[in-house]
Computed example of a mutant assay.
Amino acid sequence: MMQRLITILWPSFLVAAVADIIFTTLFDPLEILYRGEALIEHRIAAYTIGFFVFWLLGITSSMLTCYFQRSADEINRCPLPPRKRPDSCPKREDESGCY
């Protein structure tokens, strides 16, 4: 579980850092206006918020990649051991040990 979390968070962190550097190089956060007023008053706050927004987008992308990489066996696998499955379950073991 920890490896999957690191696999999601680390690349998204790096992408967020690069995206934040590029975005803040091209745009001055104090010049981004909403209804004629600056959206954020302090540059450092804009840089911080922008970084976390980019990181959230990267996390979402990495999570979707991990989700869609799962095989059919992982998706359809029953979390219960065979003996604890309901009697009506088609994958419950019978006396011979076969499904």
Rank of each mutant, 00 (worst) to 15 (best):
1 M>Y: 11
2 M>D: 13
2 M>L: 15
3 Q>S: 14
3 Q>A: 14
4 R>V: 11
4 R>H: 12
4 R>A: 14
4 R>T: 15
6 I>G: 14
7 T>F: 07
7 T>S: 13
8 I>L: 11
8 I>W: 07
8 I>G: 05
8 I>H: 05
9 L>V: 05
9 L>Q: 00
10 W>G: 04
10 W>R: 15
10 W>F: 14
12 S>V: 06
12 S>N: 04
14 L>W: 07
15 V>G: 00
16 A>L: 03
16 A>S: 06
17 A>D: 00
17 A>Y: 01
17 A>P: 05
17 A>K: 03
20 D>V: 04
20 D>S: 15
20 D>I: 02
20 D>M: 10
22 I>H: 03
22 I>G: 02
24 T>Y: 03
26 L>G: 00
27 F>S: 12
27 F>E: 14
27 F>H: 15
28 D>A: 08
28 D>N: 15
29 P>F: 07
30 L>E: 11
30 L>S: 10
30 L>M: 10
31 E>D: 13
31 E>K: 15
32 I>W: 12
32 I>V: 15
33 L>G: 00
33 L>Q: 09
33 L>T: 06
33 L>P: 02
34 Y>R: 09
34 Y>I: 14
35 R>I: 08
35 R>K: 14
35 R>C: 04
37 E>D: 12
39 L>E: 06
42 H>Y: 14
42 H>A: 11
42 H>S: 10
43 R>L: 06
43 R>Y: 12
44 I>P: 12
44 I>M: 11
46 A>I: 10
46 A>Y: 10
46 A>H: 10
47 Y>C: 13
48 T>R: 09
49 I>S: 10
50 G>S: 14
50 G>H: 10
50 G>Q: 10
52 F>N: 10
52 F>S: 09
53 V>D: 00
56 L>V: 07
56 L>S: 12
56 L>G: 14
59 I>Y: 03
59 I>L: 13
59 I>N: 05
59 I>T: 09
60 T>C: 06
61 S>F: 09
61 S>R: 06
62 S>D: 08
62 S>K: 08
65 T>G: 08
65 T>C: 06
66 C>M: 06
66 C>G: 01
66 C>A: 07
67 Y>H: 08
68 F>S: 10
68 F>K: 15
68 F>P: 02
69 Q>E: 12
69 Q>D: 13
70 R>T: 05
70 R>I: 00
70 R>A: 04
70 R>G: 01
70 R>W: 00
71 S>A: 04
72 A>V: 14
73 D>F: 12
74 E>S: 04
74 E>Y: 02
74 E>K: 08
75 I>W: 01
76 N>P: 09
77 R>L: 02
77 R>Y: 02
79 P>G: 02
79 P>M: 01
80 L>Y: 04
80 L>P: 01
81 P>E: 03
82 P>C: 00
83 R>N: 09
84 K>M: 08
85 R>E: 04
86 P>Y: 01
89 C>D: 10
89 C>Q: 06
91 K>F: 11
91 K>L: 10
92 R>C: 04
92 R>P: 08
93 E>W: 08
93 E>I: 09
94 D>Q: 11
94 D>G: 11
94 D>T: 09
95 E>H: 07
97 G>C: 02
99 Y>V: 13
